[in-house]
Design a protein around this nucleic acid. Structure first.
Length: 497
RNA sequence: GGCGGAGUAGCUCAGCUGGUUAGAGCACCGGAAUCAUAAUCCGGGUGUCGGGAGUUCAAGUCUCUCCUCCGCUACCA
């Protein structure tokens, strides 16, 4: 296995306010990063902001401020949200930073030098009000005003030249576009001849962008600029080692709405520049808000961000990761959130911690008892715990996070049953050594479960591990230290009434 | 229109190359227990596996067809 794990989220467009979609992708990246870090890989996690383009320029004009000032006002909103969600990104890139402009210009020059950029006149229908070219169909729709025919010189990237190379790469690398149905979509799309990509905008029309290195009158098309962020952060072509170490990316996580730009534009750009393609582009689905549409009059509007204030970050992270089958859409409902929280987190997981620690405090002066010699039932718990770790690793490698989480919870349920079967609260009256062994095994199993869940819920599992005096991410059996003192803790996940 | 998904218990989903009485979690009903956040444990499913037809000793699993939903894509005269 490659020991370097480089993962990215899309860079989010500064005109959107941060919403559940942004939060979901970023939490997913964070969970994968933390998991890979836990199992000993070197990780680099990049997120950031896309700050160029027409909509930013317009929004700034409406507010009567400079576009850069507009971006500077928006950026903290995202950064603060990531802090609030306990996102452990290694870098936060903004496309208006000098480091990015430098790499974009280098990249454009390389592609130009390879002969893959040419000038051409484009003639088409242009909507002055919308400030963009529109198709004939759009013109007929009547939704656009001030339409005129416009002829404009622009620069084009020879995307079509790489069509065949891209198709064969997709076909020979099954994991390149995931999930599989997205791969099929792209292959279907590539059955048509690919057009070349217009990668410039004349400054007369739009000047909020990165100037082309070979023509001062033009700026770079925003997507061409934005995609390059993934290598900017690695200091591509800047004479450092960073790029060599981390590229190609393990995952570009994206929403399904930006699949074409990532699975077609970006790879052909890389092919032209002679750069390796990323290992995997993974498109996830969307969160839908309930079976019925949200409606203010029905009063069923939920802002998932508010849940964080009410119930904490970790339960929200848990819910999002547990509930979505990666690649499919999911429904977000308050009912399913509460159900999930109470049954998994409060009843099974949090309550198990309370059972174990209370018994140890009452009967062993708060000191973790000695495990002694295992009997069959104890050994079963140990063996299941050991196979759990490898199973979770396999499932996460296949991006089946919901199943990995379910398997961990299944294990927690098994431990609850083990407690019931062995009833240490009774046993302690007859055989204090045997009861101590049961509590050690249950505590150790709980510790193991918490370590495996820590990428999803870093904060609460930290409290648990600290209470058990075992703050580390070791998944091998026996890391609970006999005779060490338990620390007091509040109920880990108080039931929602 | 073309291509590709999907339709399995009330809900969310597993079911690999066809093979014992079709599974899990949650919800629901009954019981046990009382260490614990009234949490836990045990028991309980009469599900037309979207409809129909076919192949086979045997189909949720393969073939055909129809219905419904979704995604991508193309639009004729």
């Amino acid at each position: 296995m490659n020991n370097y794990f480089y993962i990215t989220t899309p860079i989010y467009y500064v005109n959107d306010k941060p919403h559940i979609g942004h939060a979901y992708t970023t939490i997913l990246a964070d969970v994968l990063t933390r998991y890979n870090r836990n199992i000993g890989r070197k990780t680099f996690f990049l997120t950031g902001l896309d700050e160029h383009g027409q909509k930013v320029q317009q929004a700034a004009e409406e507010n009567g401020i400079d576009p850069q000032e507009h971006c500077n006002q928006m950026a903290p909103r995202f950064k603060e949200l990531w802090q609030k969600l306990h996102i452990s990104n290694d870098d936060f890139i903004r496309t208006t930073e000098d480091r990015h402009k430098k790499v974009v210009k280098d990249f454009l020059q390389i592609v130009m030098d390879n002969g893959d950029i040419y000038e051409s006149e484009y003639e088409g229908l242009y909507s002055v009000s919308e400030e963009r070219f529109i198709t004939e169909k759009e013109a007929e729709s009547g939704e656009f005003r001030d339409i005129k025919k416009l002829k404009e010189k622009n620069y084009f990237f020879k995307m079509s030249k790489y069509q065949d190379a891209l198709i064969s790469h997709i076909e020979s690398n099954p994991k390149f576009i995931q999930p599989e149905h997205r791969k099929n979509e792209i292959l279907g799309f590539l059955r048509q001849p690919l057009n070349d990509l217009c990668i410039s905008r004349p400054k007369s029309r739009l000047n909020w962008g990165i100037e082309l290195p070979f023509d001062k009158d033009y700026v770079t098309y925003v997507w061409f600029d934005a995609l390059i962020n993934y290598i900017t952060a690695l200091e591509f072509n800047q004479g450092t080692e960073l790029f060599e170490s981390w590229w190609p990316a393990s995952y570009h996580l994206i929403g399904k709405d930006i699949l074409t730009t990532h699975a077609v534009y970006w790879p052909t750009m890389l092919l032209s520049a002679g750069i390796k393609l990323p290992d995997s582009i993974f498109a996830h689905g969307w969160w839908l808000m309930g079976e019925s549409k949200m409606s203010k009059s029905l009063g069923n509007v939920i802002n998932p961000m508010d849940l964080i204030d009410d119930y904490g970050v970790d339960p929200v992270r848990y819910y999002l990761m547990r509930e979505m089958v990666l690649g499919q859409d999911s429904n977000f409902t308050m009912g399913s959130f509460i159900q999930r929280y109470n049954s998994d987190l409060a009843n099974d997981f949090g309550n198990l911690l309370s059972r174990v620690t209370t018994l140890i405090k009452k009967n062993y002066d708060g000191k973790i008892p000695e495990p002694g010699e295992y009997l069959e039932s104890d050994l079963q718990i140990r063996l299941k715990g050991e196979s759990l770790s490898s199973k979770v690793e396999m499932l996460i490698g296949e991006m089946r996070l919901n199943e990995a989480i379910e398997d961990i919870m299944q294990y927690i349920r098994t431990v609850n049953k083990y407690m019931e079967d062995n009833a240490p609260w009774k046993l302690v009256k007859e055989d204090k050594v045997a009861a101590g062994r049961i509590l050690y095994v249950a505590g150790e199993a709980l510790r193991l479960g918490a370590v495996l869940l820590s990428p999803v819920m870093p904060h609460r599992t930290g409290i648990l591990l600290d209470a058990l005096n075992a703050l580390n991410t070791n998944t091998s059996w026996g890391n609970l230290n006999p005779n060490s003192m338990l620390k007091d803790h509040e109920p880990l996940f108080p039931r929602i009434k």
